[in-house]
């Protein structure tokens, strides 16, 4: 029976977390969405890892600076250039591989920042309550109605070309409200629980209660939101690059699309138009599927907790 198994795993005191994780993982990997998401992400991970190989074979495969001297225009796929070349004769396949690395970098680091910020603010607001709560949540409301992409554009106008880490930082600063709202309500319900009361009576400090008792209980949710935030970070960076405000020193998929669009190749060069678009869409899809699969793993437990 279900209950019996759960009881057994929790008895393995050795590693409560590992047991939890394994239990969740087994449900998760059985989920078709989770399976597809993980599969696709492994593929993209391989692409990112492989991005170092072409420039190492020949300098003309450098995604940004390498130009095939024999072709200085866009031509279709060939043995030498598997996906063809762009308007300057740069290899599209190497660009695509490099784009995977940028996408992961931007997505994961921005999402991580978002989630750290969102979790910290959410826990603080929920735990402290009163004025602190009101102030933080009003701030969240304001940031929530700000269109992030357009705001980053404004900043680009004011501060000139933004480098990739600035973009990551701004995305992190602007995407936390959604996370903090969820974490806050979770914290509020945790606060009512006897074990928090017990810790307080026992004289634990606020910080200790937050980090030792509340944080472990909200972390799975934070993790879930991280996958969704990866999606939005990748999309925002790509859109920014597409509009011509990306980091000029990096080749991202959005940048590739910007080039095909701005140089007027979009009707002539499907070999150039299709791959980056497919990659951006698929990587967002796979993180999204990952998130939904995790959601389904976490959800029953959440509901049970709400009932209690």
């Amino acid at each position: 029976m279900d209950n019996g198994e759960r009881f057994d795993t929790s008895r393995m005191k050795r590693s409560h977390w590992a047991a939890h994780f394994l239990e969740g993982w087994s449900v998760f990997i059985q989920n078709p969405l989770g399976k597809a998401g993980v599969g696709l992400l492994i593929l993209f991970g391989l692409m990112a890892a492989a991005s170092v190989i072409p420039p190492w074979i020949d300098p003309m495969y450098r995604p940004m600076t390498g130009v095939d001297p024999e072709i200085v225009r866009s031509v279709g796929p060939s043995l030498k250039h598997w996906l063809g070349t762009d308007f300057m004769g740069r290899d599209l396949f190497s660009q695509l591989l490099a784009g995977a690395r940028i996408a992961f970098m931007v997505g994961v680091s921005a999402a991580f920042m978002t989630v750290v910020l969102g979790t910290a603010i959410g826990m603080t607001a929920g735990y402290m309550g009163r004025t602190v709560d009101t102030l933080l949540m009003r701030l969240a409301d304001i940031i929530m109605v700000m269109p992030t992409l357009l705001f980053v554009l404004m900043l680009a106008a004011l501060f000139g070309q933004l480098n990739i880490w600035t973009i990551v930082l701004i995305i992190g600063l602007f995407r936390w409200p959604g996370v903090s709202r969820v974490i806050r309500s979770q914290t509020l319900s945790l606060k009512q629980r006897p074990f928090i009361e017990a810790a307080r009576v026992a004289g634990a400090s606020h910080l200790r209660i937050i980090f030792r008792h509340i944080m472990p209980n909200v972390l799975p949710l934070s993790f879930l939101y991280m996958t969704f935030r990866v999606t939005s970070a990748i999309t925002i960076e790509a859109a920014l690059a597409f509009l011509g405000f990306g980091d000029p020193g990096t080749v991202s998929w959005g940048m590739m699309l910007q080039w095909v669009w701005k140089t007027g190749h979009m009707f002539k060069a499907p070999y150039w138009l299709l791959p980056p678009g497919i990659c951006i869409s698929l990587i967002t899809l796979s993180f999204y599927m990952l998130g939904r699969a995790m959601d389904e793993v976490l959800d029953p437990r959440l509901r049970k907790e709400e009932d209690a």
């Binding site: 699309l257 669009w261 138009l273 999204y288």
Partner: peptide, 15 residues
Amino acid sequence: SLVTHTVFLPWLALL
């Protein structure tokens, strides 16, 4: 809906 929801908008527009 999963696919259309996550497709990259400018690219969809170009397509």
